[in-house]
Simulated scan of single mutants.
Amino acid sequence: MNISADGYVVDADGNFDWSEPADDVFAYWVRTQQESALDVYGRNLWETMQYWVAPPPESSPAELEYAEAWQNTPRIVVSSTLQHVDGADLVRDISEIPDRDGHVQIGGATLAAAMLDRIDEFCPVVYPVAIGGGIPFFPAGARLDLELVETRPFESGPVLFRYARR
Rank of each mutant, 00 (worst) to 15 (best):
M1G: 12
N2P: 11
N2S: 14
A5W: 03
Y8Q: 06
V10F: 03
D13P: 02
G14W: 01
F16N: 01
W18V: 10
W18E: 10
D23P: 07
V25K: 05
F26S: 10
W29N: 14
W29M: 15
Q34I: 06
E35F: 04
E35W: 03
E35M: 12
E35S: 15
S36P: 03
S36C: 09
Y41D: 02
G42R: 00
G42Q: 01
N44A: 15
L45N: 07
W46E: 05
E47C: 05
E47R: 04
M49I: 08
M49L: 10
Q50T: 13
Y51L: 10
Y51V: 09
V53Q: 15
A54Q: 15
A54P: 09
P55A: 06
P56R: 14
P56N: 12
P57F: 15
P57R: 15
S59H: 11
S60T: 14
P61C: 14
A62G: 11
A62E: 13
E65K: 09
A67D: 07
E68H: 14
A69W: 00
A69D: 06
A69P: 03
W70F: 12
W70K: 06
N72H: 10
N72I: 02
N72Q: 13
T73R: 07
R75T: 01
V77E: 04
V78G: 00
S79R: 07
T81M: 12
Q83I: 05
D86L: 13
D89F: 04
D89P: 00
D89C: 05
D89A: 11
I94C: 07
S95N: 10
E96K: 09
D99M: 15
D99S: 15
D101R: 13
H103A: 11
H103E: 12
V104R: 00
G108E: 05
T110H: 11
A112Q: 03
A113P: 03
M115V: 02
M115L: 11
L116G: 03
D117I: 00
D120Q: 13
D120H: 11
E121F: 04
E121W: 01
E121I: 01
F122W: 04
P124G: 02
P124F: 02
V125D: 01
V125R: 01
V125W: 00
V126D: 01
Y127E: 00
Y127W: 05
G133M: 06
G134H: 04
I135R: 09
P136D: 08
F137M: 14
A140Q: 14
G141Q: 11
A142Y: 09
R143L: 14
L146A: 06
E147K: 15
V149Q: 13
E150C: 13
T151V: 13
P153F: 10
E155I: 12
E155Y: 12
P158E: 02
V159E: 08
L160S: 08
F161Y: 15
R162E: 06
R162P: 06
Y163D: 05
Y163Q: 08
R165M: 08
R166A: 15
R166S: 14
